[in-house]
Structures are given as C-alpha cells and as structure tokens.
C-alpha cells in the first residue's frame, strides 16, 4: 500500500529522514520514536506535503506529492493543534468533508457520524477556539475519518487526551484497521502503542531503527539491563535483600538520598512479579518505584548503542 525505497529528506543542512526503506501494509502500524526522530517528516512525505530529496515513495502506486488521486483515499490528522478557530467543530468537519468531494446531500450525516465516533456530539456546535487540547484531537480525528478513507495517517493523535479518551480513540483506530484500512499512527509513548498494535516502525534521528513485531523488539530490550529506581525506608537493607535475587545484577545506593536504591535487572517482568512478595513478607515500606529505562528513549539507547 505504502512503499518507501531509500527515502531521504533534507532541510538544508539538516536531515529529516535518512535512507528509509519499508513497506506499510493494511492494518494498524505504529510509528514510534522520540521527539525529533523524523516521524512527522515521514508522515508529511507519505501524505504528499513534502517531496523526498532522494528515493521514491509510492502510495497506492503513485507519488503522493500534491496528488489528488492519493488524497481521495487519504485521511490525515496533523500534529498541529491549530484549526479554524472561528468555526464550530461541526462546521470544520463538514467543510473538510465537502473538500473531500463528499456529496453535499450526505455530508451533514457523515459529519454527524464522524463526530459521534469521536464522542464530540456535546461540543460539536461550540467554537473550536474554546476547545481543550483533547477536544481538538477528537475533532481532528473526526475530519480524518469522515470520508471513510482507505489510508489513515494520524500524527500523535493521542497527545492531550485523557486516559479515557486515549482508550476510546485507540479502540477507534483498531476498528478502522479491522475494516481493512491502512492506519499509520505516530507516537513517542511505547505504552500507548502496545495497546494498539504489535506492528511498529521505530525511528530515531531520521533513521528507521527497527521494524516489525513489538514483542520481538521488547525481547531485545528485556535482554538489555533495565534500571529500576526505588524509594523506600531501610533502603540499605532492601538493597541487600534484592541482591539475593537471581534476576538482579546490581544495586546502587545514593549517599545524598538515604531512602533511594537503584537496581539493574535483565528480567524486569520477573522482578516486578517478585517485588510485592518481598515487600509484604519482609515489611519494607516502598513509597515509589519507576524505571528510567522503561521508556522509548531507553529502547533507542539500546538499539543505537547496540
């Protein structure tokens, strides 16, 4: 459906995407990467807003730049927050429906359906200028799905949504993919992506670092030592107790923060399953724990450094 063959895009001296070759098939594909990884540039190339400096992009067999045949099959939700602030959400969606060549007789009904799909009925007749970030995301998604496109390109569509909203929109994307559409969603949050799909493209600094099943990539990550920072009373005793576990490689105390211990493990899932037992049995009072490596940047560190 979408094919990229050695695609690079430069902005003057700065490279946006670097020598990317991949194919995106129907179904839901997540485009993962930290801010500045080149995700939006890649999406602009696919949606024909930019031309590649080198290489070739084909969307349904055609170069997408300013290509109306491609746009007939495309629904695009840009990352930008701004909309036509003076319009109501319903006017905005209807206008873009008409511009997507929907017949005038059906555009009102289709707009209502799209607005209902993103759960925006209650605010559809309010000015977009008064919308919250989450409401803007929903109305932007509505205009993208309104004309029932074959290809949905959604740039960070979950930004600014509350947990319930994220869940609702994630379900919507999955539904679209289940209808046989090609859905490409970008995100910089691994957790979000895990809830949507197993199929990911992983980008960093303009390059495609990994592509395929997320669990295979996670397995690679899990083989890499994970750090877990724990705040607890008796941190020294806790560190000693944790070092006894086979899955823990090391423990580090911080002299400046007496209730802090950081451990390294190659099997974070096993560690997380054991930790509650230890705390309950041995009476450790853990106030918080977090993993600085359980985010996408850590994945990149691992993948980049190898």
């Amino acid at each position: 459906m979408i094919g990229l063959n050695r695609v690079s895009r430069w902005y003057g001296q700065v490279i946006g995407v670097n020598d990317i070759t991949c194919a995106i098939q129907p179904g839901l594909t997540a485009l993962l990467g930290p801010n500045g990884a080149g995700k939006s540039t890649l999406m602009k190339l696919i949606t024909g807003q930019l031309r590649p400096t080198t290489g070739r992009i084909a969307v349904y067999g055609e170069a997408p730049f300013a290509n109306r045949r491609v746009y007939r099959r495309l629904g695009y939700c840009p990352e930008i927050e701004s909309c036509y602030e003076e319009m109501t959400g319903r006017q905005f969606v209807r206008m873009l429906g008409l511009m997507a060549n929907l017949p005038r007789s059906t555009v009102a009904d289709r707009a209502d359906e799209a607005i209902a799909a993103v759960r925006m009925e209650h605010a559809a007749d309010s000015r977009i200028g008064g919308y919250s970030k989450g409401m803007r995301q929903r109305i932007k998604i509505a205009q993208a799905i309104l004309h029932d496109p074959d290809l949905l390109v959604l740039d960070e569509p979950l930004n600014g949504l509350d947990p319930v909203g994220r869940r609702e929109m994630t379900d919507l994307f999955v539904q679209q993919a289940q209808k046989g559409k090609t859905v490409l969603v970008s995100s910089h949050i691994l957790y979000e992506v895990e809830q949507m799909t197993r199929n990911i493209l992983l980008m960093d600094r303009g390059r495609l670092r990994a592509m395929g099943d997320i669990y295979e990539i996670r397995a690679l990550i899990d083989a890499h030592p994970h750090r877990i920072a724990i705040h607890a009373e008796n941190s020294r005793t806790l560190a000693k107790r944790l070092l006894d576990l086979a899955c823990v490689i090391s423990a580090r105390l911080d002299p400046d923060t007496p209730d802090f211990v950081e451990i390294e493990t190659r099997e974070p899932d096993e560690f997380y399953s054991i930790l509650p037992d230890i705390t309950m049995k041995d009476g450790f009072r853990i106030t918080s724990f977090e993993s600085p490596d359980n985010n996408l940047e850590a994945v990149f560190r691992y993948l980049v450094k190898g």
Binding site: T47, G48, Q49, A66, R68, R69, Y71, R72, L74, Y76, P78, I80, S82, C83, Y84, E85, L96, M99, A100, N101, Q143
Partner: peptide, 15 residues
C-alpha cells in the same frame, strides 16, 4: 501562520 494549510493541501482539490 495558523498552520491550517495542511487541511487544504491534503484534500483532493487542485491547489
């Protein structure tokens, strides 16, 4: 400036 041009230019209408 409003960055709304993307909505216009990704529609099947001649620029």
């Amino acid at each position: 400036e409003q960055r709304t041009i993307v909505y216009l230019l990704t529609r099947p209408i001649a620029r």
